[in-house]
Amino acid sequence: MKIEITANAFNPWQQLQSYEKILNDKYAGVYGAANIFVGTMRNYNEGDTVQSLFLEHYAGMTENYLAKVSKIALERWEIIDTLIIHRVGEIHLGETIVLIATWSGHRQAAFESCRFLIEELKSHAPFWKRETLQNNSVRWVKG
């Protein structure tokens, strides 16, 4: 299980490759399915053109919350491991905001647990988005 909150831009596919190398030391041949969710910064929201995003979080509580839901997922489904990486700070168009991955023997557990993690993250993990629109006005995204 890995939880990381980072202010640095990251490539989700490189992160996955690195993490699977570690995972394979222990679990090569044990898992047969991986489910991946990647959330990316887009250039529109609620009918407006967005040029950038700032992501704030509650340091400590956010990590604890994500660890808690990861443990729930590991208990609820027959999955081998979970990975969550989430950006904070200034984010530009096309950059990855969040990467979630789950690994399991068969696809159903990987699909369902990955969906569970992103939905829990979006509805309860203490992150807040503030977007800068094309006309340079700034607004907090409504939850």
Partner: peptide
């Protein structure tokens, strides 16, 4: 103390209480 609570939760010495709007991560 970094766990969701309610308006009726009682706090004690040294506690950390946080107020925030609905979350919008992911």
């Amino acid at each position: 103390n970094q766990e969701y609570a309610s308006q009726d939760t009682t706090v004690k010495e040294g506690d950390e209480v946080a107020f925030f709007p609905p979350v919008t991560g992911g």
